[in-house]
Lab assay of single mutants.
Amino acid sequence: MFYPNSPQTSPQLTQIPYGQQYAMMQRQIQQPYHPFATTEPQARLYPYHYQGPIQQEQGGFITQQSTAASPQYVQMRVTPVDQSIMSGYPNQTANGSSSSSFNYNIHPQQQQQQQQQQQQLRHHAMPVGSVPLQDDRYRKQLIVNYLAPDVTSTDLHELFSRFGELDGARIIYDKQTNMSKGYGFVYFCHAEDAKEAVERMSGYEFHGKWLKVGYSTNPLNIVPSNSSPYVHAGSRGAAG
């Protein structure tokens, strides 16, 4: 039997160049792979992502010199942007860049009308829970959420009447099932009393439920100042 490094198959040491006398086997001759043993700084910083320098080929596509990437890492192929796409944008300079302001050559009167329309939209648009300043009635009506099913309009009136005089209180019921929808409205005579009720009743436990109280901004629920107070009856038909 002959071994790869046996004296019968191995040459004389004098015939082997210096430095390879003890590297006779194939696994010894093959050098191990060192990912950080390279002179390129990109490979030292990113050993798993770097795959060699990027070269520009004919046709405008950018390719990489090395083989496919590892399945664990996804390499994105980048193509140059066609400058003709950006030619339609206004205020574009000769080098292809555009300024931040756009001039669509709008007539001054049209621009003024658009600004007025935007101001009107901001004036009428009102986020949930906010209180408008032009109508004091919005500051007097509250919406009470997360009410228990057994709470009546009379219970709601008695709960909030300790903060001040009320114009009314009612629970909203479903017309088909005649069941409470879980929320109601309270109408105060003074805005200061309503503000105190919002601050003190939010998070209050009532009939096993934690109440959420806020201003009601729905104009359909506003009680006119010259109208008669609501009837605080315990029956659902009268309260709904």
Rank of each mutant, 00 (worst) to 15 (best):
S180I: 04
Y3N: 03
Q65K: 10
Q176N: 01
S100F: 15
Q8W: 00
Y33W: 15
M126E: 04
G182Y: 12
H190F: 15
S6A: 07
P132M: 13
T79V: 10
N221P: 14
M24S: 01
P47I: 15
G164E: 03
L220F: 04
H157V: 11
H157I: 14
P80W: 14
A197S: 07
F61I: 07
Q55K: 10
D82E: 09
Q56S: 13
E196V: 04
P7S: 12
R200E: 06
G168W: 01
V223A: 05
G234V: 07
T93C: 05
A238E: 04
L156V: 13
T9S: 10
D82M: 09
P127M: 04
K140E: 09
N226H: 03
V128M: 15
Q15I: 15
Q55L: 09
D136C: 00
P149A: 15
V198D: 11
S99N: 03
R162C: 13
Y89S: 05
S10P: 05
G208S: 04
F163T: 09
P4D: 13
Q116T: 10
V213W: 15
I143T: 02
S66Y: 09
L166M: 06
A23N: 02
I172N: 06
S216E: 04
S98V: 09
Q115V: 07
R139L: 06
R162Y: 10
N145T: 01
R122A: 03
S10M: 14
Y173D: 05
Q134K: 04
I222R: 10
Q117C: 09
H207R: 09
G184E: 06
A238T: 14
P11N: 13
M76L: 13
A43W: 15
A37W: 15
M126W: 03
N95W: 04
P7C: 08
K195G: 08
Q20Y: 00
Y3C: 04
Q15T: 04
Q30T: 15
G168Q: 01
Y73F: 00
P71Q: 04
V213D: 13
S70L: 13
Y183N: 12
M201A: 06
H232C: 12
R44K: 06
T63E: 06
P132F: 15
A169P: 13
P17T: 05
D193M: 09
T14A: 07
V213F: 06
I171C: 13
S100C: 06
F36K: 09
H157Y: 10
V151M: 09
P11D: 06
P53T: 04
S70K: 03
N221Y: 08
Q30D: 02
G88H: 13
T9D: 12
Q92T: 07
S161G: 05
A68L: 11
S70Y: 14
I29T: 12
C189R: 06
P108G: 02
P127R: 11
K175W: 14
G168D: 04
Y3Q: 02
Q8I: 11
Q42A: 14
Q116R: 07
P53V: 05
F102E: 13
A239Q: 01
F61W: 04
I172F: 03
D155S: 00
L220M: 03
E196Y: 13
Y215S: 02
R137I: 09
L133Y: 01
I29L: 04
Y48Q: 05
G184P: 15
Y104L: 02
L211I: 06
S130Y: 09
E57I: 06
G240W: 11
Q109L: 09
G59S: 08
V231I: 13
Q115M: 10
G129W: 05
I29Q: 02
G129Y: 03
S130H: 07
D155P: 03
P90N: 09
S180E: 08
K209T: 03
A148Q: 03
A194H: 09
P132V: 07
G237A: 15
P47S: 10
L13E: 03
T9R: 05
Y3V: 09
R170V: 01
Q28Y: 15
G60E: 04
P219W: 02
Q176A: 10
R137H: 01
T67E: 12
S66T: 12
H123T: 01
R139H: 01
Q20V: 15
H107G: 08
L166C: 01
A191M: 04
